[in-house]
Amino acid sequence: MKYLYMNEQERQMQYYQFPKFLLELQLSQNARIIYMLLYDRARISRKNNWTDEDGRVYAIFPIEELSQKTGKCKSSVKKALKELDDAGLLIRKFGGFSKPRHM
């Protein structure tokens, strides 16, 4: 068996940031993972100055894409998004006719 050790190459490894406060909330693991993905997408949106009329950063992350990234079915993703909504960690706004929602 070959072991991998930390070295200079580790700096090149891509990773997601996991906010510590998520461990203190009553959320499913799916909701935590989806929050982490949304947070990462929002950081990119901030760099691209994607803000709404109130100056809040928003991200566009279609449910189909979230489903593929997490390996979960769409209904599991929708349930996790509702959990985040109920916990006050996410606001979803209608994006327009046949357009994805802003989160």
Rank of each mutant, 00 (worst) to 15 (best):
M1P: 02
K2Q: 09
K2P: 05
Y3A: 13
Y5D: 05
Y5C: 06
M6L: 12
N7A: 14
N7K: 11
E8P: 03
E8C: 12
Q9S: 12
Q9P: 00
E10G: 00
E10I: 07
R11M: 12
R11H: 12
Q12V: 01
Q12H: 05
M13Q: 09
M13K: 14
Q17P: 00
Q17I: 11
F18T: 06
F18S: 06
K20Q: 13
K20M: 13
K20T: 07
K20A: 15
L23V: 01
E24N: 11
E24T: 10
L25M: 14
Q26F: 04
Q26G: 05
L27C: 06
S28R: 08
Q29I: 10
Q29N: 02
I33N: 08
I33A: 10
I34F: 00
Y35K: 02
Y35F: 14
L37T: 03
L38D: 03
L38I: 15
Y39W: 13
Y39S: 15
D40G: 08
D40V: 07
R41Y: 04
R41M: 14
A42G: 10
A42R: 11
I44T: 15
R46D: 02
K47A: 13
N48L: 15
N49G: 09
N49K: 14
W50V: 01
D52N: 15
D54T: 14
D54H: 15
V57C: 10
V57T: 15
V57F: 11
V57P: 00
Y58D: 01
Y58F: 15
I60R: 03
I60P: 00
F61C: 04
I63P: 01
E65K: 09
E65F: 00
Q68E: 12
Q68N: 06
Q68L: 06
K69M: 12
T70D: 03
G71C: 11
G71A: 11
G71T: 07
K74S: 14
K74T: 15
S76A: 12
V77A: 01
K79L: 10
A80E: 03
L84T: 04
D86I: 13
A87M: 08
A87H: 01
A87V: 09
A87C: 05
G88A: 07
G88W: 05
L89R: 01
I91D: 02
R92L: 06
R92K: 12
K93V: 10
K93H: 11
K93W: 04
F94Q: 08
F94L: 04
G95W: 07
G95K: 02
G96H: 04
G96M: 10
F97R: 09
F97Y: 13
S98V: 11
K99V: 08
K99C: 11
K99N: 12
P100H: 07
P100Y: 09
P100A: 05
R101N: 10
R101M: 06
H102C: 04
M103R: 01
